[in-house]
């Protein structure tokens, strides 16, 4: 059970401002709460608008893995992309983050993201009207390539009826366009108040039109594939060979014994 979207504050030059610190502590509380709900892995999501500087560094500190020994933590970047001509410096992002996602804001961008760009996740902004009605041809191209489509549930849990309606409408559209395949369900929740248990989410996705087998895939198998793909790209040579220090390989060896 994996949640690939816990927003992590992206600070500009004035790092560690009080509001950022509050956001970090609430993100950490969210991780602990997810752990209690039975999740095994989370990804911390850093969202950037538009152009990506070439020297971007991952804002998530390395110590975070030690701080949470009971849950696997990955880093993820989401590029909010409006213009195809912007350079996103993807090779740099591959080095800095485990998972690379894109949030297209126009139909052209969605088309490009699904067919060309080498990313792991295509994520749409579910809080607003979608830029276009997603077509099966576009989304299907993404699923064919192994790029997963993200569906987000936290905005649908707000008390505002309009936000709920928009979220349900958008999620159903995406689920329909994807024909239930190649989806990942994640939270995108700013506080631990709108996180839910994995089985509750599987059931919740029923109202978007997912059947239970596909829903289960969308919280377990598919996000796992995203993580594996991301790690292979980051650490391996041509996705074939991995050279790693001894201690990282430890779990693998255990598995062989069993």
């Amino acid at each position: 059970m994996i949640d690939l979207n816990i927003p992590w504050p992206v600070s500009g030059p004035n790092a560690a401002s009080p509001s950022d610190r509050a956001k970090i502590s609430s993100a950490k509380a969210s991780i602990l709460f997810l752990q209690e709900l039975g999740y095994k892995a989370v990804a911390l999501n850093c969202i950037y608008q538009g152009k990506i500087p070439a020297t971007l560094k991952c804002p998530v500190p390395d110590e975070i893995h030690k701080e949470f020994p009971d849950i696997r933590i990955y880093t993820r970047v989401t590029i909010v992309a409006e213009d195809l001509n912007h350079s996103f410096n993807l090779p740099n992002l591959y080095q800095q983050f485990d998972i690379v996602a894109i949030r297209p804001m126009s139909e052209k961008m969605l088309q490009a993201a699904c067919t060309n760009l080498d990313v792991d996740i295509v994520s749409m902004d579910m809080t607003r009207r979608l830029p276009c009605i997603p077509k099966h041809k576009t989304i299907g191209a993404a699923t064919e390539r192994g790029v997963k489509i993200e569906v987000v549930y936290a905005p649908g849990l707000s008390s505002d009826p309009l936000a709920r309606k928009t979220s349900i409408a958008n999620n159903s559209l995406v689920v329909r366009a994807a024909r239930c395949r190649g989806l990942v369900i994640s939270s995108e929740s700013l506080s631990s108040l709108s996180l839910r248990g994995p089985f509750d989410i599987m059931n919740l996705s029923y109202i978007w039109g997912l059947n239970s087998a596909r829903a289960r895939e969308a919280v377990s198998k598919n996000p796992e594939a995203v993580i594996r793909n991301g790690l292979l790209r980051k650490k391996s040579y041509k996705q074939v060979v991995i050279a790693e220090p001894e201690e990282v390989r430890e779990p693998l060896r255990k598995k062989q014994k069993v």
Partner: peptide, 10 residues
């Protein structure tokens, strides 16, 4: 019924 809080810490 579980009570989520933002005050959890490691």
């Amino acid at each position: 019924i579980v009570y989520p809080t933002d005050t959890l810490s490691t």
